[in-house]
């Protein structure tokens, strides 16, 4: 696999990441790779227990060069921040790039659901969106990634062999002709390269 990504003119406006079982390790590996001038918001749905909210945010915040926080209703998604969906709510992004939440029924048994975030983000950012599916033991994210691809966004999936749980990456790859299948460290490099002006 090639580590060097060469520049192109494609400009992206946001990264959305979906991750489930094994997510703590995956995010601990990936997020510190993003530089402090990473020029777009990173928005994450991580399936988790409701009482682990603060731990996760503080833990990732300590490791990351970017500010990690829970996404709030009405908040504008901005560069410099990594946003996490709160437990027990679906996280969505409106076309004006402000977050919204809902308590609709679980999707793929999950609330927050990766699919819900990805659908709304695809509608909001279209071709300027990067969608990433990481480790997980269910198929949440599969439909959302397909939607991102259909609306012209870039799709990245963690290489299943390198994932703690490969079910979610496998499901995503089976449904969509994804643009990149990479191990975590290279996903970090790719995102950074894309942010610096893109990749051929």
């Amino acid at each position: 696999m090639n580590n060097e990504f060469t520049a192109s003119s494609q400009k992206y406006d946001a990264v959305v990441i979906g991750v489930s079982a094994g997510g703590l390790n995956a995010l601990t590996t990936l997020l510190p790779k993003l530089p402090n001038d990473f020029p777009m918001p990173v928005i994450i749905v991580q399936h988790r227990a409701s009482d682990s909210d603060n731990f996760l945010i503080e833990h990732l915040g300590r490791l990351s060069n970017l500010q990690v926080k829970e996404a709030e209703v009405g908040e504008l998604a901005q560069a410099g921040f990594i946003y996490l969906a709160p437990a027990n709510y679906h996280l969505l992004i409106e076309r004006n790039r402000h977050f919204s939440l809902n308590v609709d029924p679980p999707v793929s048994y999950a609330i927050p659901s990766v699919d819900v975030l990805f659908y709304s983000a695809a509608r909001c950012f279209g071709e300027q969106l990067i969608g990433v599916v990481l480790t997980g033991a269910n198929s949440d994210g599969t439909q959302g990634l397909k939607e991102i691809k259909q609306l012209g966004g870039l799709t990245i999936v963690q290489q299943p062999e390198t994932a703690q749980e490969r079910y979610m990456p496998d499901a995503a790859i089976a449904e969509t002709k994804v643009d990149y299948v990479l191990p975590l460290l290279q996903i970090g490099q790719l995102l950074t390269a894309l942010a610096e002006g893109g990749v051929e």
């Binding site: 679906h90 969505l92 992004i93 409106e94 076309r95 919204s100 809902n102 609709d104 819900v116 659908y119 709304s120 509608r123 909001c124």
Partner: peptide, 11 residues
């Protein structure tokens, strides 16, 4: 209504 949630229900 918040549009993203509403559109999901329409979908």
């Amino acid at each position: 209504y918040s549009r993203a949630s509403l559109e999901r229900r329409v979908e």
